[in-house]
Nucleic acid binder design. Sequence first.
DNA 1: TGACATAAATCAAACGATTGTTTTATAATT
DNA 2: AATTATAAAACAATCGTTTGATTTATGTCA
Lengths: 214, 214
Amino acid sequence: MPTKVRSDEKEKSKQRILKSATKLFAQKGFDGVGIREICKDADANICMISYFWGSKEGLYQGILDDLIQRQTEYVKTFLNLEIEPETLSKKEQINLLYTVLDNAVEMLYGGFISSDLMKFLLQEQQHQRIELNSPMLVYLRKLISTIFDKDVCDKDIIFKLVFIMSQINSPLVLPAFSLKQLNQKEFSEQDKEIIKTNVKLYLQALLKQEGIDV
Amino acid sequence: MPTKVRSDEKEKSKQRILKSATKLFAQKGFDGVGIREICKDADANICMISYFWGSKEGLYQGILDDLIQRQTEYVKTFLNLEIEPETLSKKEQINLLYTVLDNAVEMLYGGFISSDLMKFLLQEQQHQRIELNSPMLVYLRKLISTIFDKDVCDKDIIFKLVFIMSQINSPLVLPAFSLKQLNQKEFSEQDKEIIKTNVKLYLQALLKQEGIDV
DNA sequence: TGACATAAATCAAACGATTGTTTTATAATT
DNA sequence: AATTATAAAACAATCGTTTGATTTATGTCA
């Protein structure tokens, strides 16, 4: 049976490794960091990765699992994705869309999911090692297709989803254009508001173009 | 003195390696591909990389040099970045902005620069191994700051630049949301038009918000 | 309570495989 | 014959992983 004090220490060092790994993976990519560097940063022995997760690939999965859990938790707390968009009025649908997107910004920039974690995830998605089909994204797609009265697989809907999500992700994905240029280490409350306002501006333009009242 | 026939063969195999390397770097990242894999794909011996570029890092620079050259060439042919935005009327400034952005789309999706190359570049920029300060981007920033009558280092200008560029890049950077979902291998003429139209829609919304006439 | 046994957590060292690079030898063109 | 392009093999360094030994906290029995 595991002891109490040592078990706490174990958990702490496990979290330290997760944190260091996420940071370094985000900075240099999965293949760009060795486990020695990770463990040095986390002040742990290299064997701990095998001990905890079996392998470096396992650590990778561990990080992903952590993200999925956090996101699920966030959605459960702040959103209700059970609502069928079709049962709402157009105005309600649009307000719901604003709410979901506001929450997406909050999730990414509000500290609920670390920037490192999100950067890592978007990177990995680009390498097609993983597929990003989070419940929130799936719901967004359905919601947008309902509002614009088109099929979810319609080219227009997919592009709209890409354009909208890119506006939310881009300050995170293109740090050379944003954080670095802004001479900041992280995003502020003010930055969050800029992103939220911008998404709304873009959405309103979209709606107006399609002749949908707001 | 170098012979003629063999020299041609040499150049061909050099180009084959560049092409394979670009493709694989874009797919798996710089550290995710070994030179053996690259040379196998390019049907060349591994020593050729040292022979041509000195090292794997040198090959990387070779690819970057290739990009810079292509972009410079494109800009020279299709754009005139010598025009001082301040000397133009507001309407001319805005039309110029549309032209530059249309050309950016054309450059990225029109085959002038391969998608692989651009994906690789955006990736590397994220890893902060390189800085993306192309003449076109620098000019865009100046143009936007002139139109919105703000300093180029203003937070608003930087965010606007990020939001605009992300709309152009995003279908390339988030393939899981676009190409794959569209069941396409590459982007069509129609896709280009969608992207161009979308950028214009967004810009018009931006201008209207700031009370600038169009 | 104090000595011992047990199991878990951590360490340093070494493993074979793979990395980028270099060397040496061969083939081909002028 | 001379030079250049290609091939195969070997190089040291680093990779992720495993091993065996050591430290540490807890439970048990005298």
